[in-house]
Amino acid sequence: MDKVYILGGLRSYVGVVNGMYRHVPAEKLGAAVLRQVMDKYQALRPDYIIGGNGVGAGGNITRLMALEAGVDISVPAFTVDVQCGSGLESIATAAAKIAAGEADLIIAGGFESSSTQPRRGYAPNHPDYEGDSWYSVAKFMPGVHRETVMLEGAELACQREGVTKEELDAWVLRSHRLAAAAQAKGLLQNIIAPVFDAVKDEGVRPRMSQRLLDRMPKLLPGGQFITAANSCLINDGAAFVVLCSEAYAKSHGLRPAARVLGSAACGGDPLVSPRTAVAALQKLLAKHGLREQDIDDFEVNEAFAVIDVLFARAFGSSVEKYNVFGGALAYGHPYGASGGIITLHLLEALRQRGGRLGCAGVAAAGGVGTALLLERVD
């Protein structure tokens, strides 16, 4: 198996739904970031472009994005949809292709525009047809199709795991505090591709406070836990990394940022999908014979604060090396792009903190967890 490296990558600033990117379709937002990535790393004709996307128009939207970016028509592109896990699974797929000797250079990541996502509805012949009604949240499990299903899953996870409001609040405050500090110090500027006149991540709230959290109403009727603060916002964004083989890096005189050591995916109860992020990390570590103490930095997509709570309970000695720049509760969660975003944050955490091994993890709708293991290259 060939060694697989990540040269680096870029992400857009993350916008909130109907915010700064409200009139920018997903393929144009992704194309703007992709173009900067290709130029920065001189990856003008990769073997593949693999893009994660969860709520776009379908029809292999990654190919459309590549063409919008002016990529040569000879370059193939395909789309991965594992909802929240799409971007990370795209990177894992790219690494597997290179490791198998099927490619030497691949750009992978994801892009999303919730602001311009299409309306969807069932055809009259479908058994779930209910007139001319639309839905925005896909069906993730048999027999259940509601717009609130992800919120219900997080609520159920809190109930089943005995999570407290105090635990959730602490993670919300931490995420915004760390993200605001990273923003003020410019700690992530190295991985930002400013596009469409954006100047900051819209979701970060430097003034997030306990008083504000205490006033937050519950999002579900009869709910006890889930609020707009301890669940991520709805977002737009894009992020891509450049992966290559060892032979490609050597022949082009390139210095990679990290080596991809492996990935793992797992399934879990689709009604309680937040659990799968930790489950995927545990599977990945076991697969490579590692303990949590061996990992220098963790990045997990905190779509809900309950994911943070579950991480802290499973990896109690690793809290200080977890989401060190803040997480999705502050930045937001542009579904298809989030795997790329946390991979880039992980690369920066390893670089800035001098760590060697790092793990990224995502819990996806439908009960699928994905995790990635990286080794920083000196």
Results as ranks from 00 to 15, higher is better:
125 N>G: 14
141 M>L: 10
165 K>Y: 00
149 V>K: 00
127 P>F: 11
153 G>W: 00
90 S>Y: 08
107 I>E: 14
106 I>M: 08
119 R>F: 05
86 S>W: 06
121 G>M: 15
151 L>M: 08
91 I>M: 06
85 G>A: 13
101 G>Y: 11
147 E>P: 01
152 E>S: 04
164 T>C: 08
137 V>Y: 00
167 E>G: 08
112 E>F: 08
159 Q>D: 15
124 P>L: 05
129 Y>D: 07
130 E>P: 00
99 A>E: 12
152 E>I: 09
115 S>N: 05
93 T>N: 13
163 V>N: 12
135 Y>I: 02
141 M>E: 13
159 Q>L: 15
143 G>K: 10
113 S>L: 11
109 G>L: 09
161 E>A: 14
156 L>Y: 00
145 H>C: 08
139 K>C: 11
82 V>Y: 13
109 G>S: 09
125 N>M: 07
131 G>I: 06
94 A>R: 04
109 G>K: 10
112 E>I: 10
102 E>A: 13
115 S>Y: 02
120 R>F: 03
90 S>G: 09
144 V>W: 03
135 Y>Q: 01
135 Y>T: 01
126 H>W: 03
113 S>E: 11
97 K>H: 10
115 S>M: 01
119 R>Q: 04
102 E>K: 12
92 A>S: 14
130 E>I: 02
118 P>N: 03
86 S>Q: 13
115 S>K: 03
91 I>S: 06
105 L>Y: 08
155 E>N: 04
125 N>E: 14
159 Q>M: 15
108 A>Q: 15
114 S>W: 10
155 E>H: 01
98 I>A: 06
86 S>F: 12
80 V>Y: 02
117 Q>W: 06
110 G>F: 07
141 M>V: 07
129 Y>R: 09
126 H>N: 13
162 G>Y: 07
154 A>G: 15
110 G>M: 06
162 G>P: 06
90 S>E: 09
140 F>V: 02
118 P>S: 12
160 R>Q: 15
94 A>F: 04
108 A>K: 11
122 Y>P: 01
146 R>Q: 09
81 D>K: 05
127 P>C: 14
144 V>L: 10
142 P>V: 09
97 K>S: 10
160 R>A: 10
101 G>N: 13
154 A>Y: 04
147 E>C: 03
141 M>C: 05
96 A>S: 10
154 A>S: 10
130 E>T: 07
81 D>Q: 06
119 R>P: 00
91 I>W: 05
142 P>Q: 12
131 G>P: 11
110 G>L: 07
148 T>I: 15
117 Q>H: 08
91 I>C: 09
144 V>P: 00
157 A>R: 01
148 T>D: 15
117 Q>M: 14
160 R>T: 13
122 Y>N: 04
102 E>Y: 12
136 S>E: 15
123 A>L: 15
160 R>W: 06
101 G>F: 13
167 E>I: 08
